[in-house]
Write a protein that binds this DNA or RNA. Sequence first.
DNA 1: ATCGATCATCGTTCATCGACGATAAACGAT
DNA 2: ATCGTTTATCGTCGATGAACGATGATCGAT
Lengths: 121, 121
Amino acid sequence: MIDPPFLPAGDDAAPDPAAFTALADRLRALGHPARLAVLHTLARENRCVCGEIVRELPLAQSTVSQHLKVLGEAGLIRSRAEGARTAYCLDHAALAALRAEIHAVFDLLLRQGANEPAAES
Amino acid sequence: MIDPPFLPAGDDAAPDPAAFTALADRLRALGHPARLAVLHTLARENRCVCGEIVRELPLAQSTVSQHLKVLGEAGLIRSRAEGARTAYCLDHAALAALRAEIHAVFDLLLRQGANEPAAES
DNA sequence: ATCGATCATCGTTCATCGACGATAAACGAT
DNA sequence: ATCGTTTATCGTCGATGAACGATGATCGAT
């Protein structure tokens, strides 16, 4: 169902640098507490108008709108104009795909059990 | 085994903003292609000296050292001075913990199956 | 037709990031 | 003791990020 574009070939195939870039872009979109809070709100409310999110965060409307734009450009949320308002909702498919990619990366990083070459710091 | 500090209480408990910040910090550390490449190299080689990583990336030594510092401050890798060199390796425990936190977040975001309130964009 | 509400965008400001070269410190070997 | 190697740090530069207020466009209702 989900198509994992990360490392489609063998395990240790040299990962396409573009794949790293595409994944990093979305991880960076997640890498801000306000955006995590926005996603959490959208998950709880299922569908939010911008003003509702503004009311939940200690940020100006323009700042929230900017964060929504970042999340939209990362493809993690979708928007729909409804009269004077704009409704936002999670893009479940995109989030599921991202989860799969992240899962694959962590599998790659943690594959062979904990080797501990006596690291100190 | 792994302690997931994310949302220890009920599902819809208001998430501690500090939890968002802590998670966002590590996600941001992952949100750069060079750092993903570094992690991938460390996973493959299990233990790398800085120069080896420099040889794999089209970046100056000082830049790579900076990325290693970011990853270290995020707690994702560990370092050990060995003579004139410094060996780096993944912090498997920290990565496993992060994976668990990310997993919890995505579970939260994707919990109730795909609701599609007719989003257009 | 006007008004209030809603939201995206613009312009600005300050801080942080990402990259580099240069430098200095630490070490092993000569 | 000196030299070459390795790496962390410093200073710099340009670009990007994050935040805000102000503005303007769009819409519903009056």
